[in-house]
Design a binder for these strands. Structure first.
Lengths: 346, 346
DNA sequence: TTTCTATATGTAATCGATTTCATTAAATAA
DNA sequence: TTATTTAATGAAATCGATTACATATAGAAA
């Protein structure tokens, strides 16, 4: 029952009557081995059901084929990030790499802890959505030449490969859409201030208003915790105003959900009483009441592109830094009062 | 710039004027070391910014503190599974363990590939939602005494710790609810046949009908691909019948979403034309049109419980196998025609 | 004072693969 | 035929920690 030993190069070497070096060469392909010998080794390995230990291998060589990618996102429970994770994982799978997933919860300490741990695990590289705050420890990793890819967020001060979405333009389009429909008092329900995406999307909001000669009313600008409760709170604040907005721009998926729930609770008619456009189009957006008009960002591609970029950098560490910006697009449904029942398949 | 060496036990040993064994003892706590010496080692380590390599450690010892947990789910993009993943990750974090996440896509080959890879990575244990099909390779792992926890799904033939949900009872309650509301022709839109949860939920459906003296009409029983498209297709099939159902039970979250989209497309009134109850309550359920009545299953707890169970088994490999069943509960909203506007906070 | 024990630490083997360096045999050039 | 290059392989060091075993010292027991 407990007989099932784990065989090693040594066992295979003995079985095939060669040295461990030869066995290793056959499996890692690091040097030519005579065809006949190769076959003998393969046979022996098959007979013993031998599999090389990725741990031992990783200890010996830096960037090997059998590597692990570290992924740090804010919260895997947020569908946006689980899409990213899925994108990363798929690319990793194709290259036989493992993915170690971590949640930072927008917490600098937790992020730093994970960064350390992933280094201790000797991951080949990192993909992360950095929190806002102090980035000294990230700079340290960069100095150590650890390949890092930022995904979803960008940090000016750091020279790192990034894959982001055109947040400003996306937000701009969303708000412009509201303006075109006649809205002038447009509120914004933002996520945590200081986070890259929150700030960028605010810029898009501001740009659209300015361009249309609408002055920004600070009363209409709210920030929340990037989750459902934050969205609900935003709606409460805005509706409590003497002169409430006729439309709101919610800057992330979970907050939008919170908005919907709060509006439902208060029997607010959407879009008649209050129009809403969201950033981040999710699978449930078209099943909402009413179907949500939202900026769709390619979460999966964000993840897969980041992973591919990481692999490229691992192959060629001296590559120039690239900052890829993927395009978002506005999916118009009914939550802004657009007349047509326009549904796009995903 | 490239000066940032990675220090090892050896460097610390030299710096502190002790042997590598002593350094190791200080860091792993495997044996008593004189307080003064300990301090000297800690100082030296701090000075060099030394961190032990988890890879080297894992190579040497089997179950150490610094271990990695392998997690195989069907699809991280399914919010149910990302909740589980989050639950696992949180427990792992508290114990300073890494989590390597894999998606099987209900594909036996992919599952088997990942199982092999995770073994090669020398993970301390596995948490997985097994696909249906051949489980010989899982049995092999069990024979090798690899700790495995099944989550969400149960396989009769295997003696393994499991954490599942009361699928039969949950489904039973959902369908019973429909019956109480007067429905007699109740369709079921099931996931992939053969998968544990699909089959169990069907049993609950059948039980509820039988108990109420309603015969199962095979025409009303459909199976799909467990995703949005499967749900939409289910609705199409059921509505194409000469004598279509007045209510449907959709057995998973994504399919329910597909149902909603298809019903919206066809201008089916919910619940007047067709009532719907779903299995799996998600954050967006209360924002649907109309708010969804659904069986809530504790995804996060499923994950965290599984992780805790794994840790217990690692500490005590001879523990008797435990099969934990967590309770689901029916969250009544409006998609079944219940009069009250009953909303439960999550 | 001598013997025994407990405590603290060091030496060297080990985990499982990779890789440098050396060696041998075969093939080619002189 | 002899010298030189090339191809194939092996011996042993290495990656960075852990640990079995050995040893030295101090204190307790005789």
């Amino acid at each position: 029952m407990k007989e099932n030993k784990n065989y090693t190069v040594e066992d295979v070497a003995e079985e095939a009557n060669v040295s461990t070096a030869t066995v290793s060469r056959v499996f890692s392909g690091s040097a030519k081995v005579n065809t006949e010998t190769t076959n003998r080794v393969i046979e022996a390995a098959k007979k013993l059901n031998y599999r090389p230990s990725r741990v031992a291998r990783r200890l010996r060589v830096k960037n090997t084929e059998s590597m692990v990618i570290g992924l740090i996102v804010t919260d895997l429970q947020n569908p946006f990030f689980s899409e990213i994770a899925r994108g990363v994982e798929d690319v990793a799978y194709r290259n036989e790499n493992g993915v170690m997933v971590c949640n930072s919860d927008e917490n600098t300490d937790k992020e730093s802890f994970y960064l350390d741990t992933l280094m201790d695990e000797q991951v080949a590289g990192l993909i992360m959505a950095p929190t806002s705050g102090n980035h000294d420890y990230i700079q340290q990793l960069i100095d150590q030449n650890i390949p890092i890819i930022f995904v979803d967020r960008y940090i000016d001060a750091l020279q790192v490969d990034t894959v982001t979405v055109d947040n400003v333009t996306g937000a701009y389009n969303a708000v412009k859409h509201l303006i075109k429909l006649g809205h002038r008092r447009i509120g914004i329900i933002g996520g945590i201030k200081g986070i890259y995406t929150t700030d960028e999307r605010f810029r898009g909001y501001a740009k659209a208003l300015e361009e249309s000669g609408i002055e920004i009313d600070d009363q209409l600008v709210t920030y929340g915790n990037s989750k459902e409760s934050g969205g609900a709170e935003g709606i409460r604040k805005l509706l409590a105003l003497d002169n409430p907005p006729t439309a709101v721009f919610s800057t992330n998926n979970l907050m939008t959900l919170g908005c919907f729930e709060e509006m439902y609770r208060r029997d607010v008619n959407v879009p008649e009483d209050l129009a809403i456009v969201g950033f981040d189009d999710m699978s449930w957006a078209s099943a909402l009441n009413p179907p949500l008009t939202a900026v769709r960002q390619p979460g999966y591609e964000l993840g897969s592109t980041a992973a591919e970029l990481l692999l490229k950098r691992l192959k060629n560490p001296n590559r120039t830094v690239s900052n890829i910006e993927l395009r978002s697009n506005l999916v118009i449904r009914e939550s802004c009062g657009s007349p047509q029942k326009d549904r796009q398949e995903q």
